[in-house]
Design a protein around this nucleic acid. Sequence first.
RNA 1: GGAGGUGUCGCAUAGUGGCCUAGUGCGCCCGCCUGCUAAGCGGGUUGAGGAUGAAACCUCUCGCGGGUUCAAAUCCCGCCACCUCCGCCA
Length: 424
Amino acid sequence: MIDVRVLRDDPDVIRAAQKRRGESDAIVDSLIGAEERRRSSIGTYEALRAEQKQLGKLIPRAEGEQKQQLLAQTKELSDRVKAAEATQAAAAAELDDLLRALPNLASPEAPAGGEDDFVTLEEVGTPRDFAAEGFQPRDHLELGQMLGAFDVERGAKVSGARFYYLTGVGAQLEMALTNMAMTRASEWGFTPMIPPALVKPRAMEGTGFLGQAADDVYYLPKDDLYLVGTSEVPLAAYHSDEILDAEQMPLRYAAFSPCFRREAGSYGKDTRGIFRVHWFDKVEMFIYTTLEASYAQHEQLLAWEKQWLDALELPYRVIDVAAGDLGASAIRKFDCEAWIPAQGKYREVSSASNCTQFQARRLDIRVRGEHGTVPAATLNGTLVAMPRTIIAILENHQLANGSVRVPAALRPYLQDRDVIEPLS
RNA sequence: GGAGGUGUCGCAUAGUGGCCUAGUGCGCCCGCCUGCUAAGCGGGUUGAGGAUGAAACCUCUCGCGGGUUCAAAUCCCGCCACCUCCGCCA
């Protein structure tokens, strides 16, 4: 949710941001109209209500005929107050609905356009030349089967397409990555968290996932609860309805949680292996700070993500995601894409978003500082999403015989093994 | 799942239809007093919105949402959270 004052003071900023996203700016005029109706209806209601309160004070002191007259007068006024209040509430709700439908204002620095209009900021590391090494790289599914790292057939048997079991060394890899990520994160000043993966509508709506992304979200109607697609949701809602102390900023949390995604509309896309799945585990970083500090925190978040991929010795590139592909909450987003040898391309493994005050306004999270109490800024970034990271490790560090070299930084978390071997 | 209880300002409490414009104590902030500290004295101390050049000012906020009434912290209904007990359960 954006600041209503921008509507009055500088609506062209909103129009420009909508255009960068490739979306219609017609909503801006609706917003302006709704905002005016809200203000005028508040004025009407409050004037009537003040009159009602004044008269009400006279009643207990009045006697006889005068009292009867006052009662008749206030009774009539009471109906008008009720009507004015209803009008005012409806106008406020209309404005709120429109405001919540509007995505965050895409940063002028975010490239304009859609999914393909990203800008590559840098490429780190060099993809291996398997031809020069004299063998054809296997893809992650083949490697996973040789190593006994996961089982997609039985995943489909038990839960359906896009489900899997992590098995043997695959399960161990997830635990190792989790422990390594949590260790790193706490060294960086993040509080480790294990949050609930089922949340109320407020949390899901407040983080901006019930807009265009709603089709991708699992919902349990019997309990009116949502399965989170990322622990960004319970972490953002963690401090909802709270006023935080500016001195304590930034607050940093790193959460391990399962993530559930319906993947609606992705039929036939990435169907092989465990690249695109309905459930996976992830360690997510989340930061509460002030708007002013958020830009630097965003860079810092990206720096940590890069440090993580460096530690895993994976080649990757960083892209500046285009405005149309930001999602509702972010003004700017950097994705890290690891090189996937069998696909011959870079694929997203992590993402860092600055949501500025968008989520905090919806969830009513404020920061009290020297210059008053203002909405907090929130940022989120992936530290490690399990299946894709496991894919990247297996494919990039594979050896000719199907073994996989364990990157040095991960070895302490994997029984000091330097290589994982095929089953037989 | 069943039965009962509780929910008021940062904390603790008072308040059972109209002088509640929510009192008091503690904590916190400012000032006075004071070798220093404490005590004492005086003042301030929820949040949101509207109005204004800025104020004064006005409205809302007693877990949340409805209702009754001229008038609701107070009465009624629904929901939520917490506590106690029973059942079930990892």
